[in-house]
Amino acid sequence: MTEERERLMAICRQVRSDIVSMIGKAGSGHPGGSLSATELVCGLYFGGILKYRPEDPEWEGRDRFILSKGHAGPLLYSVLARAGFYSPDEMQHLRELGSILQGHPHAERIPGFECSAGSLGQGLSVANGLAFAFRRTGHPGRVYCLMGDGELQEGSVWEAVMTAAQHHLDNVCALVDYNHVQLDDTVENIKALGDLCEKFTDFGWNAIEVDGHDVINVVEAYKIAEALKGAPTVIIANTVKGKGVSYMEGDPAWHGTAPNAEQLERALSDIAGGNGFEKYLEEDYDSEEEAPEGEVSPL
């Protein structure tokens, strides 16, 4: 397991470096919410959970990942590049005229990207629609949807939450990047979400809470979610906005600000040093003790 943890953590370091590098080069972008969700998405793409074929992005049998928090585009841009959907060189052109990597993702341009996003609160409905289509066509795949915590302030999210529960869409797995920070301030100071597990379970969902920076636990959570039938499952990942870059962590200022050259250097140094991840590599670290909470569905 330690070997697998090291393999996945190395990928996460690569992806974090890509995120800050491409945003730094572009001179604008949203580093905080990409860095906080890195383990969530890397665990999905590189932990053997999501079924996809980089050489055949439109492969019918693939699972689907819907990025609802479109401002985390750079995270997906790196993940898709490192998964082999396109050349990592594309990341040099983030936010440039004619680039496949727009400021917020335009799916038509990006191999492997399923649905454009940027206006919040829309992705979970899309995921539900795909789940209905899978059910209707006998497709065995699963649909994952990543949302931000601030995004849950959009009322349309809760419309979709009700739909998935009403129709027992157990092929839907929602991911909440609970990093507690939004653009203006902390989520708690603006419109607090309270007990998210309880909110979702009250709505008829299964809920799993994980340390969103423990990539092995994240992968385990996906496996538990897949085994839960009869209701959709949400994975609530406790995360830190800007995770891995010391001066960005927990600071709303880094929701949508690009690092300058000097800041980028410090960011890359932090990431290479594994800032804040040491505990996950300690020899006596026992992932069993911090295994995800089981389902708390009232079903």
Binding site: I66, E114, S125, V126, L130, F132, A133, H139
Partner: peptide, 9 residues
Amino acid sequence: GTASGMALG
């Protein structure tokens, strides 16, 4: 939004 997902499917 749901219709959009259906169309994607």
